[in-house]
Design a protein around this nucleic acid. Structure first.
Length: 556
RNA sequence: UGCCUGAUGGUGUAAUGGUAGCACAGCAGUUUUUGGUACUGUUAGUCUUGGUUCGAAUCCAGGUCGGGUAACCA
């Protein structure tokens, strides 16, 4: 049977149309153009998936190009983290490029415009320029310097480059139309004086091109066939096209899609920076952060992030994607790949009364039921075990399938037990549960004939190891913190991080590697945190398992 | 207010003049040595008003609502 073909998104339709018409001799060239002034987040991942994905799908190429035209905010540190994140996501660029590589060319493009009478040097202050710019409803007014001679403009611009002027003293503007409906077309600034050290060109330049005079031209130089960006750049397209036309260079074309928003997250650089600076989180890679590094540390896999954006799709309307979909994607992958282990994060003791102290039974345990060839490991069973506090109730409701006085459950990979009695401390907290086990109910060779509905996880007190476990919840209590009345930080979830310092884990987990993913049975998916040491293991919970019992309890 | 965009179940996304479908979430059930997984069923949608047409989510006109935009940032 033929598998159903997935519908094309609008970008794929455009590309296929271009391919059909041999618009660029059947070539597809895209680029991912980050500014190296911050860390990549999940929203960037969408752009990465779109740009690299499209190039791959249509046998084209995708460049990594840093839009580094503003030296005061850009740093090499960001360049490195961006490259690492893209590679981690599973993409490889064709060429690694920098807008700063084109500074000389861009400068010549500016000269070209001047020579055509399409650019002029303006010494007006930013305030003066703003005043003459008009408003969306009122047309702007021509600058008194708008009609300088070409020779004068050329000399002034050369002097700007030579360092004759202070920051802000002069700019080069395109001469377009001060009455244009599109504010960006009202003689936009294309070069400014900035005596700043650039992370790549050093002190070679003291004038830098603006975004609009660098991005499209860089696209053109690289012969980008499909310059894909987000919707807020739509108004820039007119300018983008204007420069390409006036300069007579390769006709790259810009296409815009809607950025992907995920609920309970913020992705603006400003807000992310605040969270870090004001220490609401541990850093850029805090597992609660929507940064690529945060997601990675949380235990998300590249594949899960890719399949997330794949299933979201690409369109032009505003969206607010349910974080449940992201969690579905990581569960879907980890269910097939994560090794199963047992851990007890809120322990109470279980004594097996009919097993002699000192006796130990070794039991085989599957590493992953869903994955062929995952093998098994041995776990030990004895008379003193740890079980989860949640798995025992003094007065269980009818549909509770776990332990309670007189109730039977299976201990995963081991035996069926029947609870006989329990002990409490002075505060009324359960401390110890007592049970008998049925020796003929051993997993895999159960001849007892006993049927139980519940299966619980456990650990042998003698072999269990201690570890710290960090449980995460969404960072915000509201779906869209950025659009809430007041400060977004007022909506930080106080329970976004729960540290369990005295959890028990099975000894096999001592060998966990940084890349390994685990399912702690019935608790969720976990990975080792980067701050773990041999003496102090830390595990982060990536995401919990679906929990229909918790839902049942909630319903009451 | 000008210009630019967009509007399909709770969420995301298809249907390109011809049966409104898929995924997530929800609900119900089957299977199950993870209350997981898998599987089955199911609830729920075309912003509005007109027009064109045998037939409109789709085309046209008006309205409504949402988003973007007015940096010497990108």
């Amino acid at each position: 049977m033929m598998s159903e073909e997935k519908a094309l998104n609008f970008l794929e339709e455009i590309i296929e149309e271009d391919l059909k018409n041999r618009t660029h001799q059947g070539k597809v060239q895209t680029r991912f153009p980050p500014e190296p002034n911050g860390y990549l987040h999940i929203g960037h991942a969408k752009s990465i998936c779109v740009n690299f994905g499209l190039a791959k799908k249509y046998q084209g190429q995708c460049n990594l190009r840093f839009d580094d035209t503003n030296p005061s905010t850009e740093e090499t540190e960001y360049v490195e983290s961006i490259k690492a994140d893209i590679k981690w996501l599973g993409f490889d660029w064709d060429r690694e490029l920098y807008a700063s590589d084109y500074f000389e060319t861009l400068y010549n493009y500016a000269l070209n415009l001047i020579d055509k009478g399409l650019a002029y040097v303006d010494p007006s202050s930013a305030e003066e320029m703003a005043a003459l710019k008009g408003t969306p409803t009122t047309p702007g007014t021509d600058s008194p310097y708008r009609n300088r001679s070409i020779a004068e403009n050329r000399q002034l611009f050369e002097e700007m480059r030579a360092g004759k002027y202070a920051d802000g003293a002069m700019v080069l503007r395109a001469k377009i139309d001060m009455k244009h409906d599109n504010m960006l077309m009202r003689d936009p600034v294309i070069y400014r004086v900035k005596h700043a050290h650039h992370h790549r060109t050093g002190d070679q330049w003291c004038i830098y091109p603006m975004y609009d005079f660098a991005h499209g031209q860089s696209d053109s130089i690289e012969q980008i066939t499909h310059s894909i960006c987000t919707m807020e750049f739509i108004p820039h397209r007119e300018l983008y096209d204007w420069f390409i036309e006036k300069l007579g260079i390769f006709p790259s074309h810009q296409y815009e899609f809607a950025r992907g928003n995920v609920n309970y997250m913020v992705t603006s650089k400003r807000r992310l920076l605040q969270l870090v600076k004001e220490q609401f989180v541990e850093g850029w890679d805090d597992p609660r952060m929507p940064t690529i590094s945060g997601l990675r540390r949380r235990g998300y896999t590249p594949g899960s992030i890719r399949s997330f954006w794949e299933s979201v799709g690409v369109a032009k309307r505003d969206n607010n994607i349910d974080i449940n979909l992201l969690e579905f994607c990581i569960r879907e992958e980890l269910n097939k790949t994560a090794l199963r282990r047992m851990a007890v994060i809120d322990p109470i003791k279980l004594i097996i009364t009919n097993l002699e102290e000192g006796q130990s039974i070794s039991l085989p345990a599957e590493n992953n039921h869903e994955m062929e060839g995952a093998g098994e490991r041995d776990i030990s069973f004895s008379n003193e075990l740890w079980i989860e506090r949640d798995d025992f109730m003094e007065n269980p409701p009818p549909k509770y399938f776990r332990l309670g006085p007189g109730l039977k459950v299976r201990l995963k990979h081991a035996f069926i037990i029947e609870c006989t009695h329990f002990e409490k401390d002075a505060d009324g907290h359960i401390t110890t549960v007592f049970a008998n086990y049925f020796p003929d109910s051993k997993s895999g060779s159960d001849t007892s004939g006993i049927k139980v509905k519940g299966v619980i996880h456990w650990l042998d007190v003698k072999t269990a190891k201690q570890a710290e476990v960090r449980l995460y919840d969404r960072l915000f209590t509201v779906e869209d913190p950025a659009n809430e009345e007041g400060d977004f930080k007022d909506f930080i979830n106080p329970d976004s991080l729960t540290i369990v310092s005295n959890a028990w884990i099975e000894p096999a987990l001592l060998e966990a590697g940084m890349e390994d993913k685990f399912q702690f049975l019935r608790l969720g998916y976990f990975c080792k945190d980067k701050n773990s040491t041999a003496e102090h293991l830390i595990f982060n919970r990536t995401v919990g398992l679906k929990d229909s019992w918790a839902k049942e309890v909630k319903k009451g």
